[in-house]
Amino acid sequence: MSHANAAAAHADAHRTSTGLSHNKLLMWTFLASDCMFFGSLIMTYMVYRGRSVTGPYPDEIFNIPFTSVSAAVLLLSSLTMVLALAALQRGKVKVFRVWILATALLGTLFLGGQYYEFTEFSQHGLGLGTNLFGSSFFVLTGIHGTHVGLGIIWLLTLFALSFRGLVRQDNAEKVEIAGLYWHFVDIVWIVIFTFVYLLPY
């Protein structure tokens, strides 16, 4: 990576004790904190598993093939995200734009799938207040969806900024950090997919 020139210009102002960038350290620290956030939500879901006193129950309404596809879509978006970063690090801004847009689209597709799933569930009579499953499921996946939504806004902002020359090879770290967030949201879904959808009751 060619940070060297840019970095040398501000060498004094931007010296860090560890040699690591502030922004990346911030993002990793935030993700550590977010582990606990999603941990608490998943914990609520797990301790309430099988405690609902009325239906509909999860195994009656989960559509595993459908969710598998949307899980795969999100997983694929992680690949396009990392390809976008790789392209930018090699100075290929146009390729970067294609991949970052693809990532945002796949994220939107995932959210669309979640919207479909939510409406489907509510037609089967599952609302937020129907039972413990409804409350813990909708809040957990809804907050995850909100994270995806914020990620999409972030990616689209980067996409737009690249046209004003604000996203370049020498500050590809901006994209790397957005990518860290995006991949984290993806791994949270890996966990949710297993523990919420697949584990048998």
Partner: peptide, 15 residues
Amino acid sequence: MSHPGGETSVEHAHP
């Protein structure tokens, strides 16, 4: 953006 003052060993090439 804050980058290491010199290229230090912490930044390895990404695959």
